[in-house]
């Protein structure tokens, strides 16, 4: 992570190679953190989930010496990576489960909808972006990027109430698209 700051400075100057390097570094870092987080969680979790997620993002966001535009770009990239990563993981898990289901899991009692279906969410989010791009962006930054309303507002250069509105709409839109 140490040299990501330096790379980000180059990023601002429009160095494409730097952008590629940042992204690949970042993805590795992110992937590792997410994996460690999920593993700790699975192990029966002595760690507080929220604290850990916070930690993940704190580390990524602790880059203070770059201007807002670059930081916004950067966090947007993080959010997108997070989305890709989780959707990918969900897809793998689904394949696995389908395999497991075939293993004579007869007494299936009908699935509850306690959880968001990440794959369906991914597809829906792609649709939302064509219809209400700003709303889709808020969802990506908030839900996948883990940013709060204030940060979203700063990055998107809109008011707090706009972020709230877009968030509420995006959430409702996506949820109805998934369950419908």
């Amino acid at each position: 992570m140490a040299d990501i700051t330096a790379l980000l400075q180059q990023w601002r100057t429009g160095d494409q190679a730097a952008v590629d390097r940042v992204c690949s570094e970042l993805y590795k870092e992110l992937h590792g953190m997410a994996a460690r987080y999920l593993y700790a969680e699975r192990g029966g979790g002595t760690l507080q989930a929220t604290a850990l997620v916070h930690d993940v993002y704190l580390r990524l966001r602790s880059i203070r010496d770059i201007d807002w535009e670059a930081r916004g770009q950067f966090l947007a990239v993080v959010a997108r990576m997070m989305r890709n990563m989780l959707v990918d993981a969900a897809r793998k898990r689904a394949v696995r489960e389908r395999g497991a289901v075939e293993l004579e899991l007869a007494a299936k009692l009908g699935r509850t909808d306690d959880f968001l279906d990440f794959m369906a969410l991914d597809v829906a989010l792609d649709k939302l972006v064509t219809e209400s791009p700003r709303s889709a962006r808020v969802v990506e930054l908030r839900f996948f990027g883990g940013l709060d309303v204030k940060e979203c507002a700063e990055i998107m250069q809109v008011s707090l109430s706009t972020v709230e509105r877009e968030w509420r709409y995006g959430r409702a839109w996506l949820q109805s698209a998934i369950t419908g």
Partner: peptide, 21 residues
């Protein structure tokens, strides 16, 4: 609203992935 929206995607995923069984 689905309770998952209250948290980040990573947390939602972890919950789904069997954390705190």
């Amino acid at each position: 609203p689905n309770p998952d929206w209250q948290v980040s995607a990573l947390e939602a995923f972890a919950r789904r992935d069997g954390g705190e069984p």
